[in-house]
Design a protein around this nucleic acid. Sequence first.
DNA 1: TTAAAATACTTGCAAAATGCAAGTAAAAAA
DNA 2: TTTTTTACTTGCATTTTGCAAGTATTTTAA
Lengths: 144, 144
Amino acid sequence: MKELNQRSACPVSTSLDVLGDKWTLLILRDMVFAGKSTYGQFLQSAEKIATNILADRLSVLESQGILTKAVAVDKKSKFTYSLTEKGVETIPIIVALILWGSKHYITDIDPGLLNELQAGKDSAIEKYQRLAREKSLASLLHDA
Amino acid sequence: MKELNQRSACPVSTSLDVLGDKWTLLILRDMVFAGKSTYGQFLQSAEKIATNILADRLSVLESQGILTKAVAVDKKSKFTYSLTEKGVETIPIIVALILWGSKHYITDIDPGLLNELQAGKDSAIEKYQRLAREKSLASLLHDA
DNA sequence: TTAAAATACTTGCAAAATGCAAGTAAAAAA
DNA sequence: TTTTTTACTTGCATTTTGCAAGTATTTTAA
């Protein structure tokens, strides 16, 4: 349980106190856009996060109520991380980063996704939020 | 001139390579929402950035073409930083952070701004982008 | 004309965060 | 019963950050 130290009462600053580093939003990206949900899956991303950093970020995200951790349905040695509603609501941030990055740098973004985001950003955000909620709900139902 | 080291070709990752730390977006916030444009003004924000970090971030932002540096109109010992179009286009990211932060944490956000953003996010973003462009254009005209 | 203040940094060093490689522990598979 | 899978933890080197002090140029004040 790590307590959040807010540098100021500014909402931008506070958001950055939680999400403002080079790794946290990549974990959320992997959950939303790559369907990942386990420690091992997060380790396999192209950016090669270190194991101790991943463990630390997952624990911060959990203690901030952005994701929840549960034993996987199939294996007791595996954990499944799911987005909370607070986590689902970071999707607009991730989408803004996708649009800015793909506009100003050379990236390998999926043209279909880019098109979808450019055509109707708000409805695309709503779609990915809906999908993320469905996924989280599904993992909750499995537990019960 | 610091070269950007992209960890991967993912647009989220690349955006975070540039903007993903606890200070960079606060400088841009100060330019967009507090009308700040000088080193001394950036130092006075509530979060208390260290002088060496500020100097470093300004030089990165300049070398990434997000802002430009020019001698101030009134004083030769002062510099004025202005947003480029690439910088203006970070405003959707900042707005997404404002909305997420103010929704999930206790902050002192201006209720008028919050209302404006919640009422019509896209048009509010357009408004602040237009204002930022006007401000940058004005400082360019002063130089000539 | 000269001294003090303003402005924008730079430098040195301690502290914290990150990155890397190896090790541990429980559960699952062979 | 041994090996593999999965999720970490630990120790240590490197990098980044933070703090305090110092420098350089321009502007203001005496």
